[in-house]
Structure formats: C-alpha cells, structure tokens
Amino acid sequence: MSTTIRKAVITGAGDVSNVSVVDGPISAPERHYVQVRVLYSGFSGSDINMRLGIYPFQKKAPFTPGYCLIGRVNVNGQDSNKFKKGDLVACLSVYDAEAELANLQEKYLIPVPEGLDLQQATALILDWNTAYGMVMHSANVSKGQRVFVHGMSGAVGYAITILAQLQGAEVFGTASPKNHDAIKQLGATPFTYANKDWISAMNELGGVHAVFDALGFESWDESYSVLTQKERSILVGYGGNLPMLTGQPPRSMAVPVTKLLAQNMKICKRRTTFYYIGRDDKTFVPDLTALFELLKQGKIQVPIKRVYGLEDVPEAHKSWNTGSGIGSLLVKIAHDTLV
C-alpha cells in the first residue's frame, strides 16, 4: 500500500530547471526499514553537486535529494522494533530527506534528545559532524595550535572555527569580506581568499598546524604552502567546491585528490588527508551524540543562515552561496505537532 506525499525531485544533471517539487507515492517501509515523518532536512553543497551530476557515486536521476534529516517515526517495517511511533530520530540519509515521508534503514536512525532546538540539531548531523570529525580525528587539534579554515562563514567552516577554538586553538581563515565583522566577533582572524594576503601572513607567523580546505584543486597547493615545517602539521581536504563557487565548469576530483595524497610521499613533517563523512564510520554516532550534548549544555550555538519551505527547494538551489549571513541552510518540511 502506498501513500501520496510531496517531495523534491532532481530529474537530471544540469541547471535549476531540473529541480521540482511534486506529488508522488511512497510505499510502506520494507523489512528493517522505518518510515519517518520528516520535520527538517539539511541543505548543503552536496545538493548542488548532485544536481550538477558530479557528486561521487550518486544515484541516477530521477531521485529525491536531502542528505540528512530529523523527524518522528511514523511506521515500523517488519522486524524493526528499536523505535516506536512518535520517537524523534536523526539520520544521515544521503537521499530522500526533502520529502514529507522517508523510508530509512533502521540501523541508520539515531535517537534525538527531546528539548533540543530542532533546527540547530539538524545542522549537527552533516555540517557539524563533518567538522567534528576533521577537528577531533583527522587533525587532532589541540591547545596552542594555529588553525586555518577556508570558508569560515559557511556551515562547515564556521563549525570548524568554533570546535577548534573549543580545543584551544587560534583560528585564522578566509571568508567573504561582508562576513569579516561577524568572524572577528568570534575571536578569529579572517582574510579575503582572492588577494592571497593570507599566504604571506601565515608564513610570517611560521605557518599553521592544520588547514581545512573545502575548495580543492589549486587551493590545496596554496593551503599546503602555509603548513608549518617546524612541527607536525596537516592539510585536511574535503568538498572540492572551487569550481562551484567560481562558476567554472564541473571538474573531476580524481586527479586533485590523488595529488593531495601524494604529498605524503615527501619526507617532511607536513601531512595531507582527504575527509569524507560516512554513516557507517565507527565515529559517526559517538560524534553526533557528543554534539547533541554540547548543544544541550549550551557550549555551542549553531547559526542558521536560512530556512526554506519544501516548495522552495528550487529557490534554495538558485540562491545557494548568495547573500550575507553565516551558518547552515535547512528545509522545513513540517511542523512538529508533538511539542
């Protein structure tokens, strides 16, 4: 038996004309699946890359996007008994979150503590969990280190900035000039990416202990150049957003990632890695649980740049990376009627 729902659909690779919101069927959840009534979905660069058709190993169109969600359990499939109807859950869904209902594997559902701000909690699943993994595991940032973050006013870049500061690091980075004042209020030091002043400034300080670079391609070469050689240091590459942000044609990540990792063949104190968050990673659930606790205790505040409605998903694609403001983008699917 199927139910008719509203959902976003990407019908092919290309411009925003390939994004629409339609009525469509959803079947009852299969064995080991749970049907979730979606409250909020995240919206990020992965949505844009999927629409462009350049996200690694993505589904063939048509498909419903939405990389993460928070919602309430609606129906359990056969042999699914971990949650009951109405339970609040989070999921790194990868697809299907931008819809009124989503059928998700039970093993990927994570309980969400009641009482959290659900908009902020949704941003933790992908944006902040990505940042947490890089700061805490990839770079192991510690007190007294110097850290450089590209895109400090973006969702992940902002999270890296805050989490690195919580570890006691001094944070520098790049951001749009319109957001420099807001970055300075955090106690961090922003530069403008395009003029490259940040390269000479960091080298005059003796280099940094960690760089987090979501731009990729030529930017990874520049970021590598500001790593300190006096102590162990690391460049953490992720994303590969440079063509998307500069309006260039889509480019394959295979060569730049290979080149990035090949830097490790040098005999020196500089290291490189490429970070990709995965819901099967052994650190994924513990890291998200830790972030929920930080939010509950008020140790982090998660800025939300804009919240779109489900019907506004095409507009979200049009306006991505425009306008001022800092933080994560969300899609509100439904009001939480249980609170």
Rank of each mutant, 00 (worst) to 15 (best):
G86N: 08
K305N: 07
A210T: 03
I160M: 03
D197H: 03
Q35G: 06
L245C: 10
A8H: 08
A28K: 15
L295V: 00
G42V: 04
P303Q: 00
G24P: 03
V94N: 05
I125T: 02
A201W: 07
E98N: 10
V313H: 03
K59M: 09
A169E: 07
V339T: 13
A28S: 15
P177T: 15
K59H: 15
G278N: 07
L245Q: 03
A28C: 10
E311Y: 04
M265T: 09
N129K: 06
I304V: 15
A13M: 10
K230C: 04
K296H: 13
D79N: 10
Q105P: 10
D336Q: 10
F57A: 10
G239P: 06
T272E: 03
S153E: 01
I277P: 04
I277T: 05
Q185R: 10
C68H: 07
F63C: 08
Q35Y: 14
D312M: 09
M1F: 03
K178A: 08
N179A: 06
L329C: 12
S176A: 14
G12V: 07
Y132T: 02
V112C: 05
D221T: 11
P243D: 13
Q165R: 15
L88H: 11
P303T: 00
A175C: 14
T161P: 12
T189P: 00
Q167C: 05
F191L: 06
V9R: 07
P25R: 10
T272S: 14
G173Q: 00
P113I: 01
S219W: 01
R146A: 09
D87M: 11
S46E: 08
V75D: 05
N321C: 13
H317T: 01
K296W: 08
L260Q: 05
L39S: 01
A99M: 14
N140G: 12
F217T: 01
S20G: 10
I54R: 04
K230S: 12
I333V: 14
A90F: 06
P25G: 11
L338Y: 15
S200K: 11
V135F: 10
W128K: 04
A97M: 15
